[in-house]
């Protein structure tokens, strides 16, 4: 393997070591086929899965350990493994926004992100924004403005709205509409949500 020679010792890994490492375990699963058939250079120390791997996720300020296959989405890990069911699974294809979470403070679709990709990043779910006993200003405002009907999309809107208010304390109606562009409400309660978010902005500044 010419590529082996180029690599300084200890900088990763050689195909030979990879073959040794995967040895009996993976040989039976057909993984070796790819290694043998193609010129793929392996870095076994870095390649994980396809079985479960242990990862640590920082969720709402708390570290939580979980074992997942690399293919598991962050949404499924949150809901099915870690009992954070606030983020909802609706379209499961990055279109409706019901699964919206904050990742390092920015809104993201947790259905379209692998759980392994979220390791080392700050995840905030709707559970991290308020509790039934102590709602966030935006959650209060949603109730005040009757900004939900069936309520299933609401967690995603709350998170997307929070992302806006975190960066823009004085949003216009256009700003709010832009910030909610990645979320869908089939009941059509947008007309309640826009004032709810604008009023929450005022309340957060102590002006309400």
């Amino acid at each position: 393997m010419p590529t082996d020679e180029k690599k300084p010792p200890g900088s990763g890994f050689s195909r030979r070591n990879f073959l040794k490492t995967i040895g009996a375990g993976a040989a039976a699963t057909g993984l070796v086929r790819e290694v043998a058939d193609t010129a793929v250079v392996e870095a076994a120390s870095d390649v994980q899965g396809p079985g479960e791997i242990s990862i640590t996720l920082n969720i709402n300020g708390k570290s939580e350990k979980v074992s997942v296959e690399p293919r598991v989405t962050l949404l499924d890990a949150l809901r099915n493994r870690l009992d954070h069911t606030g983020s909802k699974k609706v379209c499961d294809r990055g279109t409706c926004g019901a699964c919206t979470i904050l990742i390092d403070g920015q809104p993201a679709y947790s259905c379209s992100m692998l759980a392994v990709e979220a390791e080392g990043r700050k995840i905030t779910t709707v559970e991290g924004l308020g509790t039934p006993e102590q709602l966030s200003a935006l959650q209060e405002s949603f109730i005040e403005h009757d900004a939900q009907q069936c309520g299933f999309c609401t967690p995603g809107f709350i998170v997307a709205g929070t992302a806006l208010l975190n960066t823009n304390p004085n949003p216009t109606a256009d700003d709010v509409n832009e910030a909610l562009g990645g979320n869908l409400c089939r009941c059509g309660t947008y007309s309640g949500m826009v004032p709810a978010i604008m009023e929450a902005a005022k309340a957060m500044k102590g002006g309400a």
């Binding site: 058939d37 793929v40 250079v41 870095a43 870095d46 390649v47």
Partner: peptide, 28 residues
């Protein structure tokens, strides 16, 4: 389908982990 996953820090390491066969591996 289940898949192997890697997230190296070096672009050339990442490329070396990819297969030129269509569909065999994917860049994320």
């Amino acid at each position: 389908k289940a898949f192997e996953y890697a997230a190296p820090g070096d672009l050339d390491d990442a490329i070396a982990m990819l297969s030129d066969a269509p569909g065999d591996s994917a860049v994320m």
